[in-house]
Design a protein around this nucleic acid. Structure first.
Lengths: 141, 141
DNA sequence: TATTGTTATACTCTATAACTATA
DNA sequence: TATAGTTATAGAGTATAACAATA
């Protein structure tokens, strides 16, 4: 079946908006927000990097990432090191506490989403799984 | 292939967050936001309804919808009518201007997403299309 | 007393513009 | 001059709590 981009856009956009609303609202630990968790996850996956790189990966502007990183530093979840050769740059990375937090988060707040995913059938989960890469590609194009 | 809910959650959540960031930021017409457009689209699809119903469909709390509706009324895109039998309720619906706006929006801001979708191949678009229903279900569970 | 909607308030998310320090 | 990061500022998005009107 040939899918019309315009019709797909009409259906996809509101579905994404509503689902993210629900996911953002769902927080077991009220002290840490989804935006912060997402940045921590990217640091875990990709290793230490500059704030600018992290902002690019997270699809936000650098000043937005500055704020997220300040709050994460205050929580003790990330640390900074000077860049070895470029004095303008900084390298941020997860602390041990940050790693511990991410693990615990996967057993609480994260569990909520996992539980909902368990209510889907195998076919639906497989469809979602296949689509994650497409969603990422769309955000990067 | 059996997909583990926990792993799927880990991949899906940040992908959704980042994609919605990009989509929200994309506005041809700076005067109308994605939140407003989403509410208008729901009114177009489902017809006139009470603010409470609309809030439930959009997955926001009633006070949030009150604000969205005020801004849309100021723009002239929605109108209110008293409920025929229940004096507490109000019925909100699209105006002609609201309908005209939604049409034009599909040819500007909306076009941006359609264009990105055109950069995908048929298989990827089909996967997305299949997944829209699953995303909706996840938001409603 | 319960429900619908609104007002008041506050915090998160994010951006653009301007500034500082280093290259 | 150009780049990386931060500070200043502002608006959008959303929630909870408290209130008014109607059922």
């Amino acid at each position: 079946m040939r899918i019309e981009p315009a019709e797909l856009a009409t259906r996809l956009r509101p579905a994404l908006v509503r689902l993210v609303r629900v996911i953002r609202q769902q927080r077991a630990d009220l002290s840490v927000t989804l935006t912060q968790i997402s940045a921590l996850g990217t640091l875990e996956t990709n290793g230490p990097m500059s704030p600018g790189e992290l902002a690019a990966l997270e699809r936000v502007q650098p000043p937005s990432m500055t704020k997220v990183l300040s709050s994460l530093e205050e929580l003790g979840f990330v640390g900074r090191q000077p860049h070895p050769t470029d004095g303008r740059q900084v390298i941020v990375g997860l602390t041990d506490a940050g790693r511990v937090f991410l693990d615990s988060e996967r057993q609480s707040r994260h569990a909520w989403l996992s539980q909902r995913l368990q209510m889907l059938d195998d076919r639906e989960r497989a469809a979602l799984y296949d689509t994650v890469a497409v969603l990422d590609k769309l955000a990067r194009l």
